[in-house]
């Protein structure tokens, strides 16, 4: 464990930026976003950037391949390998979200090559939390404000800087490159404070045995009632650091084109609409139910973890306040 003065942060990013594109939190129109860093001021007073780490490793749209030629002569070119990138300033919940997406995309019969390449090209420098935001509930979902999953280096905010600790070999390497900026850490106080941080909203929620308690709840009238306020937009899914649903689509001009893969949301009414008109989830009730059961029941069944890390973005941003905390609160009352 090392200590880095706050003032050394630009030099750290500058050094790492010689080999990679650096991203850091920046303030823009009153919002904090993870943005390409070109020396601008690095935002520090934020709980979570508006955009999660997800978009930098699993972009909203990315090319699968390019095609050229006509009906009878056609050639394909796979998308080139992504350039190395360093992302500073994401929170432990977001990094844990990345780890969860990695489980889905990298484990099993098939490996998602696009994600694998970009994940391996990314160094995640996570800033642990000293203060909870009003809508944070990470602990309820089994994630801690000092969670190391998905991170390469942990930065624990200290009085005049950060305690810095590598989590992975990639993180170790990054820290070696900036060894001159690091001093021995006097103690582990800052890390301990993050590890012990209380998350008040999480303490109000019960997630014990949730998957088991949700058995047989599929047809409960609760879903119809709660779904009424849903507007079937994609705000929750697109801000969510763990939602990974995508669509694959082509775009072309003349004889050249690209096949792209991009985010989609199970809340959009056409998500499951098939050519021919069959739609297994035409009703809001069905789509809302699928979203929450996916995160609270199917994800534990398939991957051993909730599909939610408690970052609070859906809580803050859902235009109709239909979010994970609302549903968990309701379930606490409705479920046996």
């Amino acid at each position: 464990m090392k200590l880095m003065r706050a003032g050394a942060l630009p030099r750290l990013l500058e050094t790492l930026g010689r080999q990679a594109q650096v991203y850091a939190p920046a303030t823009e129109d009153g919002l904090v976003l993870l943005r390409p860093w070109t020396g601008q001021a690095i935002a520090t007073s934020y709980v979570n950037p508006v955009n999660s780490l997800k978009g930098l490793v699993y972009p909203q749209t990315e090319a699968v391949l390019e095609f050229t030629g006509g009906d009878e002569n056609l050639s394909l070119r796979e998308a080139p390998a992504p350039a190395p990138q360093v992302v500073f300033g994401g929170r432990p919940c977001d990094a844990a979200g990345l780890a969860l997406i990695a489980q889905v995309l990298l484990e099993g019969t098939f490996v998602d090559e696009l994600f694998r390449r970009r994940r391996e090209a990314t160094t995640v420098l996570t800033v642990a939390c000293r203060e909870p935001g009003p809508y944070c509930f990470c602990r309820a979902m089994g994630v801690s404000p000092a969670d190391e999953r998905g991170s390469d280096v942990m930065f624990y905010p200290a009085d005049d800087g950060y305690l810095v600790e590598a989590v992975t070999a990639r993180g170790e390497e990054a820290l070696q490159a900036v060894a001159g900026l690091l001093a021995p850490a006097p103690d582990t106080g800052a890390r301990d404070a993050c590890r012990e941080l209380r998350i008040p909203l999480a303490e109000k929620l019960t997630t014990d045995r949730l998957a088991a308690r949700l058995e047989g709840f599929f047809e409960h009238p609760y879903w119809e009632q709660v779904a009424r306020r849903c507007r079937s937009c994609g705000t929750c899914a697109y801000l969510c650091p763990t939602c990974y649903c995508t669509a694959i689509f082509d775009t072309s001009r003349g004889t050249r084109g690209r096949r792209l893969r991009g985010w989609d949301s199970c809340q959009f009414k056409d998500f499951l609409l098939m050519a021919g008109g069959h739609n297994p989830r035409p009703a809001k009730k069905q789509r809302v139910r699928n979203r929450f059961l996916h995160k609270l029941s199917y994800s534990p069944a398939n991957h051993g973890a909730y599909g939610c890390v408690g970052c609070g973005r859906c809580v803050e941003k859902c235009p109709a306040d239909l979010h994970m905390v609302a549903v968990l609160t309701d379930l606490g009352e409705v479920l046996p």
């Binding site: 909203q60 507007r231 994609g234 705000t235 697109y238």
Partner: peptide
Amino acid sequence: RHLERCLRCHACRNA
């Protein structure tokens, strides 16, 4: 600057 942030979540359209 503003539209660069758009997520195409359709929250505006659906509101």
